[in-house]
């Protein structure tokens, strides 16, 4: 399979190079919001939407920056775009689903500082993807994020029912779980040589 074909990019970002479990992007919500399934899934979907919007905008703004020869402003331009996209999602959610808006709380504006989103915009620029490739890359990254955070939330809900040594309560246990998940996802690395 060609390494720039759309299917390859999609499978690669969802499974083999999962943003959270293989590239360590977006760990804050992954550890912070994964306590319960019914907040983890909406958080994943909101993040995926922001990823899509900012990927498209980043693609356009990069064209402008390259044309004007001011690429050193890329970082500042991207972060401004992402902040506006998050603001958009926040206003939309507030209008259409106030309950969800309240349950996500502080983690919604914090999507701005989710490195998965800036990482996505930067990586698609470094890899010089064209428009359709960037779009598939963003969808793949979003689905990969939803997959990771949902699996993590499921595991943590199960763990609530079991007895644990008192030392392992808290962040250490979540990190160990993340390590196991990451180990599992490494099995997909073989897909890269299809």
């Amino acid at each position: 399979m060609q390494s720039d074909s759309l299917i390859f990019i999609f499978l690669n970002t969802v499974l083999a190079n999962n943003f959270v479990l293989a590239m360590f992007l977006g760990l804050c919500p992954f550890l912070g919001v994964s306590g319960k399934l019914n907040t983890a899934v909406p958080m994943g979907i909101a993040t995926m939407f922001v990823m899509l919007v900012s990927s498209v905008c980043a693609f356009a703004i990069n064209k402008v920056l390259v044309a004007l020869d001011i690429e050193f402003l890329r970082l500042i331009a991207y972060i401004a775009i992402i902040a506006s996209a998050v603001q958009l999602v926040e206003m939309g959610l507030k209008k259409y689903s106030p309950t969800l808006f309240r349950s996500l709380g502080i983690f919604l504006p914090l999507i701005t500082t989710n490195c998965a989103i800036l990482g996505l915009a930067l990586f698609q620029t470094f890899k010089e993807y064209n428009f359709s490739q960037s779009l598939v890359y963003a969808v793949g990254a979003g689905i990969g994020f939803i997959l990771a955070i949902t699996l993590m939330a499921g595991l943590r809900e199960k763990l609530l029912l079991s007895t644990l040594p008192s030392v392992t309560q808290g962040a250490a246990l979540s990190l160990m779980l993340g390590g196991l998940l990451s180990l599992t996802f490494m099995g997909f690395a073989g897909l890269g040589n299809l």
Binding site: L21, F24, A172, L175, G178, G179, M186
Partner: peptide
């Protein structure tokens, strides 16, 4: 590799 990061920090 990536899993090592999680495990060592844990």
């Amino acid at each position: 590799l990536p899993p090592g990061g999680f495990l060592v920090l844990g």
